Simulated assay, not measured.
Amino acid sequence: MIGIGSDHGGFNLKTEIIKFLKEKGYEVKDFGTYSTESVDYPDFGQAVTEAVSEGECDKGIVICGTGIGISIAANKVKGIRAALCTDTYMARMSREHNNANILALGERVVGIGAALDIVETWLDTEFAGGRHQLRLDKIAQIEEKYRNK
Score class of each variant (00 low, 15 high):
Ile4Glu: 05
Gly5Met: 02
Gly5Trp: 01
Asp7Val: 03
Gly9Glu: 04
Gly9His: 03
Phe11Glu: 01
Asn12Thr: 14
Leu13Asp: 06
Lys14Leu: 10
Glu16Gln: 14
Phe20His: 13
Phe20Leu: 06
Leu21Ile: 10
Leu21Thr: 10
Lys22Trp: 00
Lys22Cys: 06
Lys22Phe: 00
Gly25Asp: 07
Lys29Tyr: 12
Lys29Ala: 04
Asp30Lys: 03
Phe31Met: 05
Phe31Ala: 04
Phe31Thr: 01
Thr33Gly: 10
Thr33Asn: 08
Ser35Asp: 11
Ser35Asn: 13
Thr36Val: 10
Glu37Asp: 15
Asp40Trp: 12
Pro42Thr: 15
Asp43Gln: 10
Gly45Phe: 02
Gln46Ala: 11
Ala47Trp: 08
Ala47Val: 02
Val48His: 08
Ala51Glu: 02
Ala51Thr: 03
Ser53Val: 01
Glu54Pro: 04
Glu56Cys: 04
Cys57His: 06
Lys59Tyr: 12
Ile63His: 07
Ile63Pro: 11
Cys64Asn: 04
Cys64Asp: 13
Gly65Lys: 03
Thr66Ala: 00
Gly67Ile: 03
Lys76Tyr: 00
Val77Lys: 08
Val77Ile: 13
Lys78Met: 09
Gly79Ile: 10
Gly79Phe: 11
Arg81Asn: 05
Ala82Gln: 06
Ala82Arg: 05
Leu84Ala: 08
Tyr89Pro: 03
Met90Tyr: 04
Ala91Trp: 04
Ala91Asp: 09
Met93Leu: 15
Arg95Cys: 06
Glu96Pro: 00
Glu96Ile: 04
Ala100Val: 09
Asn101Lys: 07
Leu103Gly: 04
Leu105Met: 10
Gly106Asn: 06
Gly106Glu: 09
Glu107Pro: 08
Arg108Ser: 12
Gly111Gln: 12
Gly111Leu: 14
Ile112Met: 09
Ala115Ile: 02
Glu120Val: 05
Thr121Arg: 06
Leu123Arg: 03
Leu123Thr: 12
Thr125Tyr: 07
Glu126Lys: 13
Ala128Thr: 00
Gly130Lys: 13
Gly130Cys: 07
Gly130Gln: 10
Leu134Cys: 05
Lys138Leu: 14
Glu143His: 06
Glu144Thr: 09
Lys145His: 04
Tyr146Met: 06
Asn148Tyr: 15
Asn148Val: 02
